[in-house]
């Protein structure tokens, strides 16, 4: 119960800081929309349906996500606020979960803005399988945020941050992206049901990285 309260205070603090500064959400949404628009304009209408459309959406989510992970951890590095957290008598796992929740809120905000833009530009019919789309993307984003939150904390003291973070989390997230894109493709073709084996892969990815990140977060977190 105490840990839940600590997670709530830590995540609330992140959201309050973001609400005041609006630095991350503004950047992330602009980047996401730009990616969708640039790719949408650069590809023929025949190329932006089905698998391509979901892949383009994923490109926007991935790069927007990396920006979220960097910015939310940068808040802790500024003025060594992270040291203040590490001095406090709290489980470091609570810091990880709170950061994950903050990142997920930002990523879902990104998705809420970017997805309709993609639907408009690429003319794919989301209404036919909206529930399945939300389910698949939500499970996928939890896994991606689990990986991103862990690695952003690991390398946040490094000067390479941006490039290094993308290099680390993109390959690790590849199984998630491929599985998610394939599941979405089957749905958008309209003639196939949601694959439970595919969903199991996504859920297994989430569980593995959530548990592993929770366990190792204390070891990798240095002020």
């Amino acid at each position: 119960m105490l840990m839940l309260r600590q997670i709530y205070w830590l995540a609330s603090k992140d959201i309050l800081i973001e609400a005041r500064s609006r630095q991350t959400i503004g950047l992330v949404v602009v980047l996401g929309v730009l990616i969708i628009v640039v790719l949408g304009l650069g590809l023929e209408p025949s190329q932006t349906s089905g698998f391509s459309a979901t892949a383009i959406l994923w490109v926007a989510y991935l790069f927007g996500g990396v920006l979220c992970f960097e910015k939310t951890m940068a808040v802790e590095r500024h003025d060594e606020a992270l040291a203040g957290l590490l001095l406090a008598p709290i489980d470091r796992g609570a810091i990880y979960i709170a950061k994950l929740i903050s990142n997920l809120i930002l990523m879902f905000s990104l998705a809420i803005v970017v997805t309709p833009v993609a639907v408009l530009l690429f003319h794919f019919d989301l209404s036919a399988a909206l529930g399945a789309f939300v389910l698949i993307m939500s499970i996928s984003m939890v896994g991606f945020a689990a990986v991103g939150t862990l690695f952003s904390a690991t390398i946040s003291s490094s000067r390479l941050q941006g490039g290094l973070l993308a290099m680390l989390i993109f390959p690790i997230s590849l199984p998630l992206v491929i599985t998610s894109s394939q599941l979405l493709l089957r749905i958008f073709r309209g003639n196939q049901e949601l694959s439970f084996s595919g969903l199991s892969i996504l859920i297994a990815f989430d569980v593995i990285f959530l548990v592993a990140s929770w366990l190792v977060f204390e070891l990798i977190l240095e002020p």
């Binding site: 603090k13 309050l16 800081i17 005041r20 500064s21 808040v75 500024h78 003025d79 060594e80 606020a81 040291a83 203040g84 001095l87």
Partner: peptide
């Protein structure tokens, strides 16, 4: 039981 005043204030500037 430990408190620390560091080189940096360990505070959140936006708050």
């Amino acid at each position: 039981r430990i408190g620390m005043i560091g080189h940096q204030p360990m505070l959140y500037r936006e708050l």
